[in-house]
Structure formats: C-alpha cells, structure tokens
C-alpha cells in the first residue's frame, strides 16, 4: 500500500518536473552560464533565465494547477483503500483499489462537506482574528507586538483548520468502521467525538507533527551536507529526497492508523461506560409505540475482522 501511495505521488510529480526540465534545457541550451548553478544559487543566471526564457515555464505553472486538482482527487480516492487495509484487509492491489472505488463517492461527499466547513470556518476565524489583531496592535510603537500577534493569530487560524481536518479524518474512520452513508452526519458525529476527546486527539496529532518536524530537520541537515555539484551528488540527493517523501507518506498512514485506534478506544468507552442519563420518567398510562428503523448494514461486526464490500 505504501508503495502504491508513493508511486501515485511520484508519477504526476515526475510528469510535471519533466516539463520543468525541458524548460531549463530549452532556456540554457549550450550556454556555459549554467555552470554558475553547479554549486549554489546564482541570482544573475536565475534572473536572466526568467527574464528571457520565463515564458517556457508558463505551461508548467498551468500544469501544476491541474496536477494539484488531480492529485486532490487521487488522495480522496486512495483514502478509502488506506483505511480499509488498515482495517485488516489484505493489502493487495486488487483489495486496495476495490475499496478505493467503493468508498470514493462517500469520501468525495465528505470532502465537499469538509471543504465547505473549512472555508466557512477559515473566513470567519480570519475575520475575527483580524479584529483581534487590530485591537491588540493599535498604536504599537514597535513592530514587535505586531509580529508576535501576527504569528500567534496565524497559529490559531492554522490550528482551527487543523482541527477541522482532524474531524474530517475521524469522519473517514467512522465511515469505514461503521459503514456510514450520510457524510454530513458523519462529520457532525466526528465533531462531537473530537470535542469530547479533545486532549487525546490533539496530543496524538502533536506527536505526529513533531515526527514530521523531526524528519524535516533530518532532511535539511543531510541536504546541507551534500555536495550536488557532481552527478553522483545529484543521484544521492534524489535518493534522500525520495526517502523523505516516502517517510512523509508513511507518517500519513501512521496517522490514520493511530487515529483509528483512538477512535475505537473512544467508541468503546462510549458504549461500555455510558454517561449517567436523565432520571427515569414516571410510567405513563398507555405505552407510546416505538418507531423501529431497519438495522444498518455494517461492513463488519468486529473492527479486527472487517472486510470491504465486494464490488458488483
């Protein structure tokens, strides 16, 4: 599964990067000025390239936008497969893509829900934080409070979006584990779950973020030591870069796995340790007939034995 995700990341990126390479080749041709870029960044060479051959990059920019949209769909598509495999299904390509296809429609709806909520919350929070910023920095005699408040408020904004993303993550897990069909409801249930278990949810996420920060630190440290002026240096750079990308994908899958465990734990606590309910109402003269809905079809009774639905 990890290899599949890696290939799905590499292939579109490589196609776009090839266009970039062609633009560089076309711009520099047989010029020796490229030698200035052998060691470090050279502004004059870079600038003259953009100034005289920048047009060659225009289609690359357009391709990147298309690529980003396409990859977003790919990531929506693959989430179902990732979660199903994490649910214990054998991670064959057939199983993986089968689950991707089965769950795509639901996850796409969930994505739309998430995007709408994130957009609304993002704008509202930004407006609110903007007012806070104005109030807190009005008449500041140096930029220090302005900069610190800006960082703090941007941090809060990012945290809000991150929490919404976490809600979406737990909604995905809920969808797979409990075979949810209504995504708005799933999102709402996850919201309640995240708010009820706020500290463990955030704590887990902080740990995962720290892991990524550690990976970035290691990457930057190694990259700075690399001499990329030779062909072998470039090959080594490629290997290290791809190891980093691979590890990021691994962290994402790890994130889903950890979130799934947390979700199950929270669900278990909710079913075995119910909160004390309201006092039992006094008996009424005539019993009210209960409307019983049809039982939901579940993918599995036990999470550890869950299987994806077969495609028809």
């Amino acid at each position: 599964m990890l290899a599949t995700l890696y290939v799905l990341n590499l292939v579109p990126s490589f196609v776009l990067a090839w266009g970039f390479r062609s633009a560089l080749l076309q711009g520099f041709g047989d010029s020796m000025s490229i030698e200035a870029l052998r060691g470090e960044f050279d502004f004059t060479v870079f600038f003259d390239f953009l100034n005289h051959h920048g047009d060659a990059l225009t289609p690359v920019y357009a391709q990147i936008v298309v690529g980003l949209c396409l990859y977003l769909l790919i990531s929506v598509f693959t989430t179902g497969g990732v979660l199903t495999v994490l649910n214990g299904v054998e991670g064959t390509l057939r199983n993986f893509f089968s689950a991707c296809g089965d769950l795509f429609a639901r996850f796409f709806r969930l994505f739309v829900t998430y995007a709408a909520v994130a957009l609304a919350a993002g704008i509202t929070t930004a407006l609110f934080l903007g007012i806070v910023y104005e109030l807190m920095t009005e008449g500041a005699e140096s930029e220090k409070p302005e900069v610190l408040w800006l960082f703090a408020l941007v941090g809060i904004w990012v945290a809000v979006i991150l929490v919404i993303s976490l809600i979406a993550d737990y909604a995905k897990i809920d969808t797979v584990l409990n075979d949810r069909g209504k995504m708005v409801k799933a999102f709402w249930r996850s919201t309640k779950l995240v708010l009820k278990n706020f500290l463990p949810v955030i704590g887990l996420q902080v740990l995962l973020i720290l892991l990524i920060v550690l990976l970035i630190g290691v990457y930057w440290g190694v990259e700075r030591l690399l001499d990329t002026s030779s062909a072998w240096g470039v090959v080594l750079l490629f290997i290290i870069q791809q190891a980093f990308v691979g590890s990021r994908i691994w962290v994402r899958v790890l994130s889903f796995a950890s979130q799934r465990e947390l979700f199950l734990s929270a669900q278990y606590q909710a079913t075995t340790l119910p909160e004390p309910g309201p006092p039992v109402p006094p008996p009424v003269a005539e019993p009210i007939p209960l409307k019983i809905s049809a039982p939901r079809r579940r993918i599995s009774k036990s999470p550890s034995r869950s299987r994806p639905r077969k495609r028809k």
Binding site: W18, G27, S33, E35, L37, H52, H53
Partner: peptide, 20 residues
Amino acid sequence: LLNNSKTNDPLRSPIWRYTL
C-alpha cells in the same frame, strides 16, 4: 548574459539538480 557563451559539452548536472 545567458547567451554570452557556448560549449560543446554543456554541463547537465545543475539542470538535474534543479529538476530534482
């Protein structure tokens, strides 16, 4: 200044480096 030189053996490693 890019068009001020030509070589028969252009260096390609910077192209690869920036592509990567």
